[in-house]
Design a protein around this nucleic acid. Structure first.
Lengths: 127, 127
DNA sequence: CGGAATCCGCGGTGATACTG
DNA sequence: CAGTATCACCGCGGATTCCG
């Protein structure tokens, strides 16, 4: 189990520093899912509560219908989000974070926080 | 602003649930960098200490020279890694995590830990 | 309203060969 | 050893149109 605020990881070639070849596989899979263009944004948007399709579209500027549908389906297939369709008129579909997706959001939240804290340093280094 | 339904996140004190439009931009930039195919893997590999070019190639199975060079350059441009060339024969170049990169690794480490903990659930959901 | 289907460009990615 | 250069692929992702 990895310490939450690891201090001296450089000292030991521990469990995470050198990634075992067996772990590489699913790490890559998770990274590919999480690291695609929209997944994290959707997870972050859903963290404030269930949302409808068009709400997500408004919440995430620039996302196309194709990518919203596609990413939502992938996330739902992986059990990170849930899809609930109400057989009404007009039709209504709500997407929500599952407990699993909520766990991922905890990581995403930190990544977003880190980005907010350090993006100016990164920008400065780029110039 | 006359929002129709989404008053929930407008008043929420949540740090990240509703991402302000101004933040979207650099969040996307960080995600694009961090979420590409190899960056996190290189950061994780470098967390155990400085490494040479060929060491990284051995450590990260499947990465091509092109992508290793390319990603390393991007990371170095952003100040996440440092490049030190020793003018010797044979030439030796060492890459290392900067403090900024070390901070990112703390997040990456948690993401890897999360992946290790839950990848079996994700796999089960996919079937 | 909530999608599905189609077309298509761009760039991320790998393979290979060459260089200092 | 540590790259650079060039080519070619293919699939991500946007725009548009149509369906239940």
């Amino acid at each position: 189990m990895q310490d939450s605020a690891g201090t001296a990881m450089a000292a030991s070639a521990g469990p995470c520093a050198s990634i075992p070849a067996e772990h590489m596989d699913f790490i890559r899979q998770v990274l590919d899912r999480v690291g695609d263009k929209w997944s994290m944004l959707i997870v972050a948007a859903l963290a404030s509560g269930p949302m409808r399709y068009t709400d997500l579209q408004r919440q995430i500027p620039g996302i196309s219908q194709r990518m919203l549908t596609h990413t939502l389906r992938q996330l739902t297939e992986d059990g990170l989000t849930s899809r609930t369709a109400y057989a009404e008129v007009p039709p209504r579909v709500e997407y929500a974070l599952t407990p699993l997706g909520g766990g991922l959001y905890e990581i995403v939240k930190q990544l977003i926080g880190w980005a907010a804290d350090h993006h100016h340093e990164i920008r400065a280094n780029r110039s």
